[in-house]
């Protein structure tokens, strides 16, 4: 397999109506398979959230990470994604989330660290055009002088890589700390005692509506890499809906790491 460039691919954009957290988990699974199998061109998917969620990483312990009682009290759906990394606290207007499904050739020969940075160069550029000086903070964060802006995670499936990122547009830190259990060890090398302080959301930095930030991101991707507007195919959506129901909503998957 030869290393490919972004411009070698016919990039497609999917940006549709708000969907449930479990359907988002399933769509990542289905689309990365479709791209890996060569059934779908490489795709950028911008997520819109239908409800609040906690999304935990593939290898995180449910009971160690989430206060389920608090999550229920706040009406927050807890789901497990297929990639590693840490828990994310999502409220529909507060988060910008996207997935890139690409052939593995795009990151061929790169270290993990390089592969993460490579997949988000366009975002660093988009933020720069909005006046935010941001950079990649290994292993998997986008950060600025003010603090963390986003966290990324990758998973390899067949011939494809899934790279998805959640960016903090705004944050209700009190609610987040109520639902997520954030241990002392986790914060030990961050030089702060408050997880909330580690995040510097885009709203305060740009003064722009969330939709305007997303628009700029899409425009930057289109300009750098090329991007055609696409929609989910009926078969993709049907498979994702079945997976969302049977797997990503199931207690067995959620508590797979108990």
């Amino acid at each position: 397999m030869m290393r490919s460039e972004w411009r070698d691919h016919d990039w497609q954009l999917i940006h549709t109506l708000p969907q449930s957290p479990s359907l988002h988990m399933a769509l990542d699974d289905v689309l990365v398979h479709e791209v890996g199998a060569g059934h779908r061109p490489p795709t950028l998917r911008i997520w819109e959230w239908a409800s609040s969620a906690v999304v935990i990483g593939r290898f995180q312990s449910l009971r160690n990470e989430v206060d389920m009682e608090a999550a229920q009290r706040h009406g927050i759906e807890v789901v497990r994604r297929i990639s590693g990394g840490g828990a994310m606290f999502i409220e529909p207007g507060n988060t910008i989330t996207y997935s890139i499904c690409a052939p593995l050739s795009l990151i061929k020969g790169l270290s993990f660290q390089q592969a993460y940075a490579c997949m988000d160069e366009w975002v660093i550029e988009a933020l720069a055009t909005l006046g935010i000086k941001a950079w990649y903070q290994p292993l998997n964060d986008i950060t600025s002088a003010g603090g963390k802006i986003a966290g990324a995670a990758q998973a390899h499936r067949g011939g494809a890589v899934l790279h998805h990122v959640t960016m903090a547009y705004d944050i209700d830190a009190v609610k987040m700390l109520d639902v997520l259990r954030i241990g002392r060890e986790k914060l030990s090398d961050k030089g702060t005692t408050s997880a909330a302080k580690r995040v510097d959301p885009l709203r305060s930095q740009t003064g722009l509506p969330r939709e305007a930030v997303i628009e700029r991101m899409i425009a930057t991707f289109r300009q750098r890499h090329g991007l055609a507007d696409d929609v989910l195919r009926a078969g993709e959506l049907a498979r994702a809906e079945a997976l969302a129901r049977e797997r990503f909503s199931s207690q067995a998957w959620l508590a797979d790491v108990a």
Binding site: G57, R58, F59, Q60, S61, N64, I82, S83, G84, G85, G86, A87, F112, L139, N140, A153, Q154, A155, H156, K186, V257, A258
Partner: peptide, 12 residues
């Protein structure tokens, strides 16, 4: 024994 965390591991 249950190992967990926010690391990355392939395959899962």
């Amino acid at each position: 024994v249950q190992v967990s965390g926010d690391f990355f591991l392939e395959p899962d």
